[in-house]
Computed example of a mutant assay.
Amino acid sequence: MSEAAFALDPRLHADTRFVAMLPLCELRLMDDARYPWLILVPRRAGVTEIADLAESEQAQLWREANQAAAALRAIAPCDKLNFGALGNIVRQLHLHVVARTEGDAAWPGPVWGSGAAVPYATDALAARLDALRQKLERDRG
């Protein structure tokens, strides 16, 4: 399970925008303005399940999930954070972190499969990415 052979799944590449490289994961923003939604993708080739990671990598994934969640909550206050690692369509291991608010487009159901994504407007996407990066940088420092 080498990082050298890692390649982001084409669907994840198409549906998300790059935020940052964390020690284990590539952090990406789902391009769906209906929900503040981050995706963590461990840079390990051939990994489909959290259990496929070494124990130390599993612990690192959860540290990074908590870091992503804190950044998300700081820029998009929410009523509930949803975490999910489904992998039924995209097999490459990726962990969703979704900020939910009562009354959002899918509330109280899951965001997966709830209507068509609404891509961010260019300025809104740039602002969201910038806010996330600034928060992550402040937390690292």
Rank of each mutant, 00 (worst) to 15 (best):
G103Y: 08
Y120R: 04
A126K: 10
D31W: 09
G113K: 10
A45W: 06
A59I: 08
A4E: 15
F6Y: 14
A7K: 14
K135R: 15
A71W: 00
A7I: 01
V90N: 08
E64W: 02
R138I: 06
D52M: 03
A131G: 04
V47I: 15
A116P: 09
Q67R: 14
R138S: 13
V41F: 05
P108T: 11
R63L: 11
E3Q: 13
A54V: 03
A68R: 02
M21F: 01
A69Q: 15
W107E: 05
A117W: 02
D130Y: 01
G103F: 07
L12E: 13
I89V: 15
A33N: 07
G103S: 09
A70F: 00
E3K: 08
G141V: 05
T122D: 15
E64K: 04
S114L: 01
L86C: 04
T48V: 12
A4R: 12
V90E: 07
V111N: 02
D32E: 12
W62A: 03
C78A: 15
A7H: 12
P108S: 10
N88P: 13
A4F: 02
A65P: 02
A33F: 01
A54Q: 13
A85T: 14
A71Y: 00
C25A: 06
Q58W: 07
A127E: 15
L29N: 11
T48H: 09
K135W: 00
T48Y: 00
S2H: 08
P10W: 06
A126M: 04
E64M: 04
G113M: 08
L38E: 10
